[in-house]
Design a protein around this nucleic acid. Structure first.
Length: 257
DNA sequence: ATGGTGGGCAGCCCA
């Protein structure tokens, strides 16, 4: 089973690239973020034509998340229970013997901004919710755009980024609190080339210079992580005309016994 | 050099 996450930065613009990528990548589950589409505009037929079931939680202009899967989803959630949050950032479903939680974590803008404190509150609420999800679902995968680079090796120039949003210690601590629920960053279960990132700024020729961050993550419960056979970041879509600023992260799992 | 580029929707907000 192949599971992927991709911040597409406007599904309206990126749909042809997403369809082309799906046709060549044998993905069973794709979690997308920043679809920026209201539900009425979601291109359902384009994906059902490729054999996917679709789930989505969208809004106008900003945010928006979607899940594509070969199997239908049940027990769908579009919010962190009990946490009032109008932006559409969460989409959870049970499908193909897995609990899948697709996240678009708040960006945070700048350390000590109002948006940064919102990000930390959001992550605290996420942790509390995921503790319950982890208890109920031994086979849990939490994936998406976390807007946090877990460690300095996930940052092209740690000295330039020190203390900044996406790498600050409170953000990393909040991410570790999520991982301490027993969720493993499956990318780091395998040998990886140094300087492997999932996001590059559109500005300053950052992609050509590989000035990136690894902020798109696939976290898996211990039972699921034990069945993970590979995790790679596919840079190819970032090289396209009019690319998303993020590349997809792809993880392979053996089927349940 | 505190910029630069891109998406969305109307002169900005957000990333």
């Amino acid at each position: 089973m192949r599971i992927a996450t991709w911040n597409v930065n406007s599904l309206r613009v990126r749909l042809p690239q997403v369809l082309e990528w799906l046709a060549g990548s044998a993905v069973d589950v794709l979690a997308m973020q920043e679809t920026k589409l209201v539900d009425a505009d979601f291109p359902t037929e384009a994906f059902t034509a490729l054999g996917y079931q679709v789930l989505f939680s969208g809004q106008k202009t900003y945010n928006g998340v979607a899940l594509l899967a070969r199997a239908p989803g049940t027990a769908v959630l579009t919010d962190i229970p009990g946490f009032e949050d109008p932006p559409r950032r969460v989409l959870a479903a049970t499908l193909a013997g897995l609990r899948v939680v697709n996240l678009y974590v708040p960006n945070g803008q700048a350390v000590d901004s109002e948006k940064y404190h919102y990000k930390l509150r959001w992550l605290a609420a996420l942790r509390d919710w995921l503790s319950e999800e982890a208890r109920q679902h031994p086979r849990l995968v939490v994936l998406g755009d976390f807007n946090i680079a877990p460690e300095d090796r996930d940052v092209h120039d740690p000295a330039a980024w020190v203390g900044s949003v996406h790498v600050s210690e409170p953000e990393r601590r909040a991410l570790r609190a999520v991982q301490e629920l027993g969720l493993l960053d499956v990318f780091r279960r395998f040998e990886q080339p140094p300087g492997t990132y999932s996001w590059w700024d559109y500005r300053m020729l950052a992609f050509r210079r590989n000035q990136g961050l690894r902020i798109d993550l696939v976290l898996a419960s211990a039972a699921l992580a034990a069945t993970c056979t590979a995790c790679v970041i596919d840079r190819a879509p970032r090289k396209a005309e009019r690319p998303s600023d993020h590349a997809p992260v792809v993880a392979d799992f053996t089927p349940p016994p």
